[in-house]
Design a protein around this nucleic acid. Sequence first.
DNA 1: GTATGATTCAAACAGTCGTATGAATCAAAC
DNA 2: GTTTGATTCATACGACTGTTTGAATCATAC
Lengths: 229, 229
Amino acid sequence: MNQTIETVDQGNRIQDTKERILDAAERLFAENGFATTSLRQITAEAQVNLAAVNYHFQNKESLIRAVLSRRIGPINQRRFDLMDALEFSAGEDGPLVLEDVLSAFLLPVLEARTSCPEMRHWPRLLGRLYTELHGSLMELFQREMAPAAQRFTTAIRRAEPTLSPESLAWGLHFGIGAMAHFLAAGELLRFISRGTVDPEDHMEALKHLVAYMAGGLRALRTEKKEAAQ
Amino acid sequence: MNQTIETVDQGNRIQDTKERILDAAERLFAENGFATTSLRQITAEAQVNLAAVNYHFQNKESLIRAVLSRRIGPINQRRFDLMDALEFSAGEDGPLVLEDVLSAFLLPVLEARTSCPEMRHWPRLLGRLYTELHGSLMELFQREMAPAAQRFTTAIRRAEPTLSPESLAWGLHFGIGAMAHFLAAGELLRFISRGTVDPEDHMEALKHLVAYMAGGLRALRTEKKEAAQ
DNA sequence: GTATGATTCAAACAGTCGTATGAATCAAAC
DNA sequence: GTTTGATTCATACGACTGTTTGAATCATAC
């Protein structure tokens, strides 16, 4: 009984240090980027000793890896749950609605800002990944995203079967860009709109981004038709 | 006569050093980002002395400023030339075609990769700006882009007059993101398409990006209609 | 050739970075 | 209380960074 309580406290101390480092790192990486965030900034914010990073995570790259891995899993799980529900509703071979598929992909990351306090920095961090990650870290990210990328590509094909593989690739790339830019530079939207649009309203963002991406993808479907002439 | 030749040579020596620094900086910033590119990397590539950066540009921030300014002007001038031609063809109050307006915006930066050797690094650098620039440098970029932003916003409104200001803001933001992502991370497209799409083909990129953005914007126009119901 | 200002150079500085290390402290078991 | 391994700490290291500085060199005018 007494020992049990003490064991829990020990676990909490270790978890506390690691969690504080991860939380501080996630926030600072999101705000300033990976390379320009120093370990001393992270440890100062986490109120731990500099060497704790090396003790718990070996080096900075492994810390970045840990920051990425702890979010990608749950976000993608939520995406899969939403996709499961869509596919169940559509039946074995029934058509999927493109807007629903795109929503399933986007909602988990957009809502992370407000519905889950501990994940509020993730979207902005995600928006930075594509230009800032290199080498083995980019490979890790792509590897962890591969199942979701595969599933959503398949679902989009099912929703828009006349879209060519090439046009789908273009459209996916542009859509990822639109999303990433929104996530990383949402304040620019407030500037562009002269304060009339609130980038923090994630349901509005979802509605507009889904519409935009769906419209864009369908326009590329038209592209294919014209190319065939 | 003899003095004239020597004056030219002197001018060329000064221009040579500055140009080499700017060229090297532009290439390295595009490849690695602003913060992570060191002055020693730049001067090594430019084969000049480290202190030359301070002599000619005072400090790193002013060098970044100079790198940006030397490209934005000519790119936007080309955009304006293309817009002038469109507006001339359309007549004083005739309608503009959304695809043409978007082309006028995108072509100068997309073609910079191949049609103008000295500008081949600009697109990738441009793709990085939105997540990497802060403070006074971001303000400079926005200030230099303001005339073009204004003109193209007006032209898009003229092409699609039923688009609400809010939806236009969303659409512009997403479009900038799609473009920036493509410019900064074009190789990802090769990966997504399993090698079937060549991101270096700028005429193909233009065609697909224009279609995507036009489709996206028009879908947001539909959004407005539904919101009114 | 001398004077002058422009330009380049080598070196230095103070600061910062990620990593490493041995000592100190903590926590648990006996 | 002692032992042991885990964790934290303070410090140091080598490398790197942007900026500065005075000397050396260059280019031009007289």
